[in-house]
């Protein structure tokens, strides 16, 4: 459960690691079955153009899912990312509209995201308030702020800003490259940074982590900031892809979709366990499910039912699976 990431980076362990990964992440099999079913029923699911579409759609999910997963592993939670995502897109879009360079636009979004994350982090980690309550409140408050600051929809960001969502790097869409970088950074952090182990330790047993000299406030605080930054980055990317942001609706419901991906990916809501490989699988599963059902012309509300059912079914399977150890 906690060594999966380390195994990924040791070539020697890759062969046996593959089997172990399937055992640890039965979602791989579910994902494979889903791909098979969609390919057979649509005939176009595995077409390169469709795959790249799935990847671009899933990219925003992955960017936020990684820091959110780390936050959940350390025993916290952030429900405010949907509104932060909108705020990031709005700030980046406004800066682009005002003729700022794309870099400045993105940095502006990241700074605002960091600020939202820092507020969450101070309230939850340093003042000890419940993360559920704090971030639920922030979800609503930041959405209100979005609409107060940006009452009108923004669009027409210009070709420079469109690069962020539309460019390809070595044939891969820029959002996918960004998501891949975030995923790799997350996996490397968990496996090779001391802080990665601290994340698990804090999630498993806060008191023991405190008595081991681990800073039980700063690590989750920084994860809140990272989650805010990632949400704003995802918002800027989405704004660039769509060339539009609407304060009232952009990213609405995103916080639950990303949390669903994290939980389907095997991160325990109680903290202390999870992996980046699992998160990637969860993101691909949700993204693929949405795409496949769309290809099959399944109405949106059926898609939502499928997504919700998948989460509950995943939890039920994890519960029914035989437990090992005493």
């Amino acid at each position: 459960m906690t060594t999966a990431d380390t195994a990924l980076f040791r070539p020697r362990a890759l062969a046996t690691g593959g089997l172990a990964a399937v055992r640890r992440h039965p979602l791989i099999l579910v994902l494979a079955a889903m791909v098979l079913v969609f390919q057979v029923s649509t005939g176009s699911f595995l077409a390169p153009a469709n795959l790249s579409g799935i990847a671009t759609d899933a990219a925003a999910l992955a960017v936020v899912a990684v820091p959110l997963a780390l936050l959940v592993i350390s025993g916290y939670l952030d429900l405010s990312v949907g509104s932060t995502l909108a705020l990031g897109g709005l700030v980046a879009g406004r800066l682009a509209n005002e003729g700022q360079s794309p870099a400045v636009a993105v940095l502006g979004a990241l700074a605002v995201g960091a600020a939202v994350g820092a507020v969450n982090g101070v309230l939850c980690c340093y003042l000890g308030l419940s993360p559920f309550i704090v971030t639920l409140g922030m979800l609503t408050a930041v959405r209100g702020l979005d609409q107060q600051l940006f009452p009108l929809p923004l669009s027409g960001f210009g070709s420079g800003f469109a690069w962020l969502g539309g460019a390809t790097i070595a044939g891969i869409a820029a959002p996918v490259v960004i998501a891949a970088l975030v995923l790799v950074a997350g996996a490397l952090f968990l496996a090779f940074a001391p802080g990665g182990r601290h994340v698990f330790a804090i999630g498993v047993n806060r008191e023991a982590a405190h008595l081991s000299g681990i800073n039980i406030r700063r690590t989750p605080f920084l994860l809140f900031v990272a989650t805010g930054v990632a949400a704003a980055l995802a918002g800027a990317v989405k704004a660039s892809v769509l060339d539009s942001v609407v304060a009232g609706t952009s990213g609405a419901g995103f916080e639950l979709t990303v949390l669903t991906a994290v939980l389907i990916g095997g991160v325990a809501l109680t903290g202390g366990s999870g992996s980046i490989l699992g998160v990637l699988l969860g993101v691909l599963f949700l993204g693929g499910l949405q795409n496949g059902l769309t290809l099959l012309n399944v109405p949106t509300f059926w898609q939502q039912m499928a997504q919700g059912t998948a989460l509950v079914a995943g939890a039920a399977l994890a519960y029914l699976a035989p437990r090992t150890g005493r």
Binding site: M1, P194, V204, N205, A208
Partner: peptide, 21 residues
């Protein structure tokens, strides 16, 4: 159980958590 151990983490992590940094 309450103050020292991280049961699901490996033996090595349990020993070395404070020394990794």
């Amino acid at each position: 159980r309450a103050q020292a151990l991280f049961p699901p983490l490996t033996a090595q992590d349990n020993v070395l958590l404070p020394s990794m940094r």
